[in-house]
């Protein structure tokens, strides 16, 4: 099933001073798939997705999201496009001076002119999706790491984005909580038919969730294929990922 590409990254270069982080990186995300990107710590995965949503400027190369070249967009067009992208940050990134409710309302306020009732309903739905309806009036600091991650997930989903980007959704969580998060991600995928780009070190997570994988090595998209194909590879550099 070769679908339409919702993200097309071609020949991406990015360096910080003398450190070249990305050197000719390519990636396509097709509609409806779960693409897993694996790479060592510090290989530039977070940098890549920050370029992807326009948080960082690229040095060279082109990034198209839903057919639009993000470097050519004006600020308001970029903001508009961002409503179609859900972003789960590596450290959850909940606003710690706001309650869970305010955290979830934040993206709604800025983007859509919903009535108060509709906002309330959306917040409830988002919290039900992650199984935490009782946390609505708590502060992020009162939640465990796993709960924070789930709230962050529900915040990323609240605008019903077409694309979701997960930056290490299971890092720092115990295996059981990690599994819960993975299950949640899969449910959401089924329920809303989103396309997902998942960044992870976690081989188990990759096995369960991926339709396709890309390995990021030396700043390039070193290898691509299904989990099983890559896991069977003889290339020692690829093998190192699956140990």
């Amino acid at each position: 099933m070769e679908n339409k590409a919702v993200i097309e990254i071609s020949h991406l270069y990015k360096s910080f001073g003398t450190v070249d982080v990305l050197k000719d990186f390519n990636l396509n995300l097709f509609e409806g798939e779960n693409l897993v990107l694996m790479g060592k710590s510090g290989s530039g995965k977070s940098v890549m997705i920050k370029c992807l949503v326009g948080l960082m400027e690229v040095d060279k190369g082109s990034i198209k999201v839903l057919g639009k070249d993000i470097s050519k967009l004006k600020q308001n067009e970029l903001d508009e496009l961002r409503t179609d992208i859900g972003f789960l940050f590596q450290g959850s990134a909940l606003y710690d001076s706001m309650t869970v409710r305010e955290n979830l309302e934040f993206p709604l306020r800025r983007h859509s002119h919903n009535s108060e009732k509709k906002t309330e309903a959306l917040v409830k739905e988002a919290l039900d999706n992650v199984g935490l309806p009782d946390t609505i009036d708590l502060m992020p600091a009162e939640l465990s790491g796993g709960m924070q991650r789930r709230i962050a997930l529900s915040r990323a989903l609240i605008l019903k984005p077409k694309i979701i980007i997960y930056d290490e959704p299971t890092t720092g969580l115990d295996p059981i909580t990690a599994k819960e998060i993975i299950l949640l991600m899969m449910n959401i995928q089924k329920k809303y038919a989103t396309s997902s780009l998942i960044i992870t070190h976690d081989v188990d997570c990759a096995r369960v969730i991926s339709n396709r994988m890309i390995l990021l090595l030396d700043g390039k998209d070193y290898a691509e294929g299904s989990f099983n194909d890559l896991a069977k590879s003889d290339d020692p550099k690829i093998k190192a990922f699956f140990k």
């Binding site: 948080l55 961002r82 972003f87 606003y95 710690d96 001076s97 993206p107």
Partner: peptide, 20 residues
């Protein structure tokens, strides 16, 4: 300190990607 910790915990990035 407040803005600094919002910066390092990516809260400022999160605001930006949610269009604020």
């Amino acid at each position: 300190a407040e803005l600094g910790s919002m910066k390092v915990t990516e809260q400022i990035d999160a605001m930006e990607v949610s269009g604020t």
